[in-house]
Write a protein that binds this DNA or RNA. Sequence first.
DNA 1: CCTAAATATCCCTTTACAGGAATATTCACC
DNA 2: GGTGAATATTCCTGTAAAGGGATATTTAGG
Lengths: 110, 110
Amino acid sequence: MNTNVMSALAEPNRMQIVELLRENPLTVGEIADSLQLRQPQASKHLRVLSEAGLIEVQAVANRRICKLRPDPFKELDTWLESYRHMWEERYDRLDDYLLELQSQELDKEK
Amino acid sequence: MNTNVMSALAEPNRMQIVELLRENPLTVGEIADSLQLRQPQASKHLRVLSEAGLIEVQAVANRRICKLRPDPFKELDTWLESYRHMWEERYDRLDDYLLELQSQELDKEK
DNA sequence: CCTAAATATCCCTTTACAGGAATATTCACC
DNA sequence: GGTGAATATTCCTGTAAAGGGATATTTAGG
């Protein structure tokens, strides 16, 4: 899985930006206002989100409209797919593992 | 969404540990070997994963068996749910937003 | 008890990154 | 062309976190 996406989302302000943009696209200024960020910090966070492919930015006059890109979310969803069996089926291979460890011990006896 | 989980997964080695543990539980030493990590670094990464709730550790003699916990993955899945409409339905409210911006302009005219 | 294996912790150094403040850039509009 | 609004960029500083190395801790086994 792409850790760039993860680190982009690991910063609380950026996570909030993403959750804001879930509703609808917003300009840089609107984002800064909503989250009580200074404009330069908002711009910096948006750049990180953009480089991670999480948002795309469209210039309209002297504003930039930011909107989410579906791709990284799709990828996250696909990635999660391989973990879903953990809770969808019974999944606790710990017992098996303990047995396996034990048999390794037996092997060493020889 | 919990950014602790995100930052835990943002570190490439920890992401690899998680993907390793998807297969089956493993001891600290096995993880270190698999990923060519020195044992102290492996322990440190595992502590971070543990504090984020991503793994649980069970002591068996002088080994620690690490296994994934489903909860954070479930939460991630739930969180993703609210983004799924982006690709499952047609979702491009940019046009709407541009119209909205325009009408704000018109308001200013007065 | 003593030893070796498995693991955790500590200290140190380096690096990445977030925030603050100032400044540069771009654009619409008069 | 000059002005102000929206945004980007730069520089600086502090801090958190990762890796390396050494050491402490726990446990089984002789």
